[in-house]
């Protein structure tokens, strides 16, 4: 009897705690559209159990606010529009987030583990004097998270006893939230005065008609074996047949074959597509860290000893200069 009573009380208590959970998701956008990793982050945020609020800060937030208000799982949107937010500089965004935190007392603050999230959230955490947790792949409970360490060669489960949990979320580990069906309310938040210690000057983005690397269903990647930047055309042709994004190993980037934003690996992008085709890539630990959660892995390499064959579902030992055009032709 006493036991049942206790259990009921406990359940009430848990319910109460859950109701007090509230999560802030810092939305990543380019003043025109929401960056997809924000949707994966919203899914992670809903798993924490409390209300989910999204903060949009930028020079032009209307379109993104419109998109976010329909995203399922989002309760409230905070909009902060100011010219000081040009380039999403962390020196300017941090005071805004701190002011928001002071007003709403979130229990969790999260963002996608992209270049944007990685740049910003640790700065926010230090200001709150809490230790942040990077690139989580699983949420065990409101305070317990799983992340990878040592280039994905070990899984670390950590319990965070901080008053505010600051997390960046690995996009490929959580499904994107549905972009329809939500009905979030919107509220303006006043930005603090500009800090003015940093200025955004310019960006040069690699233009491509191919799908975004981090969220593509199929990825074709090339390594040192391609021998030159021109030869990457073989992979672009194959990718076009498969509607795939094209990635690269560090060796291919360092050799100047392709730009750095195509790098897949521990220090580049983490991808987990349905199909990953590694061409002329040996499969170093650092590269595997970025792609070994792909559903199906195909390796084309002439070296039968290449470590990539240890993780490949289908391995073809062949000269890529012969095999890749053959594969492209076979897909016609």
């Amino acid at each position: 009897m006493l036991k049942t009573l206790n259990r009921t009380n406990l359940r009430h208590l848990t319910g109460l705690i859950q109701r007090f959970q509230s999560t802030l998701v810092v939305a990543e956008h380019n003043n025109d559209t929401l960056i997809p990793i924000t949707l994966n982050t919203i899914t992670a945020a809903t798993k924490l159990g409390g209300e989910v609020t999204c903060l949009i800060a930028g020079t032009n937030c209307a379109k993104v606010a419109e998109q976010l208000s329909k995203v399922k799982g989002v309760h409230k949107i905070l909009v902060a529009q100011n010219d000081a937010f040009k380039g999403a500089l962390p020196e300017e965004l941090t005071p805004l987030i701190l002011a928001t935190q002071k007003q709403f007392n979130f229990t969790h603050i999260c963002a996608g583990a992209s270049a944007f999230g990685k740049n910003l959230l640790p700065r926010v955490a230090a200001k709150l004097d809490v230790a942040p947790i990077s690139d989580i792949i699983e949420i065990k409970s409101q305070d317990t998270f799983v992340r990878t360490i040592y280039a994905g060669n070990a899984l670390s489960t950590v319990k965070c006893n901080e008053s505010v949990k600051i997390l960046t979320v690995r996009g490929t580990s959580f499904e994107p939230a549905e972009v329809e069906g939500g009905s979030a309310t919107s509220e303006e938040v006043s930005p603090s005065s500009p800090v003015g210690v940093s200025v955004w000057l310019e960006q040069s983005l690699s233009k491509s008609d191919r799908p975004d690397l981090a969220s593509a269903k199929v990825v074709v990647s090339g390594g040192r074996g391609l021998k030159s930047g021109d030869n990457f055309k073989l992979l672009y042709d194959l990718a076009d047949k498969l509607n795939a994004a094209v990635g690269a190993s560090r060796a291919a980037v360092d050799a100047g074959y392709v730009p750095n934003d195509m790098q897949v690996g521990q220090t580049g992008k983490i991808v987990a597509p349905e199909l990953y085709i590694a061409v002329g890539i040996s499969g170093a630990i650092q590269h595997l860290a970025g792609m070994k959660d792909s559903k199906t892995i195909v390796a084309i390499n002439k070296d039968p000893e290449a470590p990539i064959f240890q993780v490949a579902d289908y391995g073809l030992i062949a000269d890529l200069f012969k095999a890749v055009p053959e594969l492209t032709a076979a897909l016609k």
């Binding site: 270049a115 944007f116 210690v197 940093s198 200025v199 000057l201 960006q203 040069s204 934003d261």
Partner: peptide
């Protein structure tokens, strides 16, 4: 800086 879509240039004090 190396960012997701390419490169960006900033100036800091």
């Amino acid at each position: 800086r190396e960012i997701d879509g390419g490169l960006e240039t900033i100036q800091i004090n």
